[in-house]
Simulated assay, not measured.
Amino acid sequence: MEYVHPPTGTLTTSLAALAAGVQPATIRDWVRRGILTRCGGTPKRPVYRVADVQAARAATKPTRPGQRVARAA
């Protein structure tokens, strides 16, 4: 079941993606790559700190030649 209201100061995967301007798959990729860490929730419904999502958004950059750069909306 999805959170109706995640704990204060945290975001679900979907909300974190909206806040960062990326797709939810990107949030999951950041976790896999160690750029973003979960702060709670369950394995299927993790939550992330708002500050951590903002820091991950600022930290991401292309790692391969020709890789696209996300542009701010």
Rank of each mutant, 00 (worst) to 15 (best):
I27W: 04
A58Q: 06
C39H: 06
V4E: 15
P43E: 10
C39S: 09
R45A: 14
L15P: 05
K61E: 04
A56P: 00
V47G: 00
A72D: 09
I35V: 15
Q23F: 13
D29R: 14
R38G: 07
Q54L: 12
R68F: 09
A72Q: 04
T26E: 05
P7G: 01
P24G: 11
L11D: 01
A56Y: 05
V22A: 12
V31D: 08
A56W: 02
G66I: 08
A19W: 05
T42G: 02
V31W: 06
V31T: 14
G40V: 07
R33I: 03
L15H: 11
T63R: 15
V22C: 10
A59K: 04
S14T: 14
R28I: 03
A51S: 08
D29K: 13
A72I: 00
V53W: 06
T63H: 04
A73D: 09
A51I: 04
A25V: 06
A70H: 09
R64C: 02
R68S: 15
G41V: 14
K44W: 15
C39D: 01
A16H: 02
H5W: 09
G66T: 02
R45T: 15
S14I: 11
R57H: 07
A51K: 01
T10W: 05
Q54V: 03
G9T: 02
V53Q: 03
T13S: 14
A51E: 11
I27T: 03
A51V: 04
T26K: 05
V4G: 02
I27Q: 08
R38D: 07
Q67W: 11
P24L: 13
Q67I: 04
A25R: 11
R49C: 07
I35T: 11
G9M: 00
W30H: 12
R68L: 15
A16T: 02
V22E: 05
A51C: 02
R28W: 04
R45S: 14
A51W: 02
T63N: 07
V50T: 05
A20L: 07
V50G: 03
P62Y: 02
K44A: 15
V53S: 08
G34A: 10
P62N: 03
R49E: 13
P6Y: 07
V53R: 06
S14G: 13
K61M: 03
T12L: 03
L15R: 11
T12G: 06
P43S: 12
S14Q: 14
Y48P: 04
R33Q: 12
P7I: 00
D29W: 10
Q23S: 14
P62A: 01
R49M: 10
T12W: 05
L18Y: 05
A19S: 12
L15W: 00
T63D: 06
P65D: 10
T60K: 03
P43K: 11
A58W: 04
L15F: 08
G21Q: 07
A72K: 04
T37E: 11
A70Y: 05
L36I: 04
A17T: 01
G34M: 10
R64T: 11
T60W: 13
A58T: 03
Q54C: 07
G40R: 06
G41H: 11
V22H: 00
V47N: 00
A55F: 03
